[in-house]
Design a binder for these strands. Structure first.
Lengths: 112, 112
DNA sequence: ATTTCACATAGACAACCCTCTATATTTAAA
DNA sequence: TTTAAATATAGAGGGTTGTCTATGTGAAAT
């Protein structure tokens, strides 16, 4: 598991305003000015948030005339929930392979 | 969707070291000293990380003798992946109800 | 050609985060 | 009772973040 990379995506989405942006984009493509209508902050602040989401490959951008069209990136939509499931799963990918868990003296050991 | 609350959980887990802690705990309960063996940083730093995870209700702690036993909280394991899926889903919970998406002049409108 | 619109960039500032060293607390062991 | 072990707390330092105002840029409209 690549903690550094997953951490970057999590940092990118772990702001309440950026979560709302992602929720808006889950409905489909939107341009910056339409997104901005849903917020109280200024246009440069939105531009800052969109750059963070693009740098983290959470959102794709395409310029159409004067407008920037933003879309949730397919790789994010597909792989991010899988990465979260993988993180929480107790399976062969688990870092500790269950060697170090539940080994305190008040817990029962398996016979060796 | 409660962006503020989801943001707090995301911020809590969006650090590479805390992601590794969560991955370790996905195998089961561990005490602080066992977790610490997997890291280079100092004991007070681990204590700091565990407090953040507890405050965000990601991890539960139980003191047993000298040891602190840490476990992934059941509510986190269950509800967090659902919240992520909900965020990305284009469904009735979507903030915009699809009213504002895809409305630019270069896109086709549905007949009304 | 000039203006307007949509968006990006620069720089500043306060708040927060991660890590450290030093020290306190609590529990068990000697 | 003293000591040792496991963990928590306090405080500091350097880095990062979210927001702002001011300004730049590029495309469309007049």
């Amino acid at each position: 598991m690549d903690y550094t990379n997953l951490s970057k995506q999590l940092k990118a989405i772990s702001d309440p305003n950026r979560l709302k942006i992602i929720d808006l984009l889950s409905c489909g493509t939107m341009c910056a000015c339409d997104i901005l209508e849903h917020f109280e902050f200024t246009q440069p602040t939105l531009s800052h948030h969109m750059r963070i989401l693009q740098d983290a490959k959470v959102v794709d951008a395409e310029k159409v005339g004067k407008w920037q069209h933003y879309t949730l990136s397919q790789s994010f939509e597909e792989s991010f929930p899988l990465n979260i499931a993988n993180l929480l799963a107790n399976d062969e990918n688990c870092i500790c392979h269950c060697k170090n868990a539940n080994k305190k003296e008040d817990l029962i050991y398996e016979k060796s």
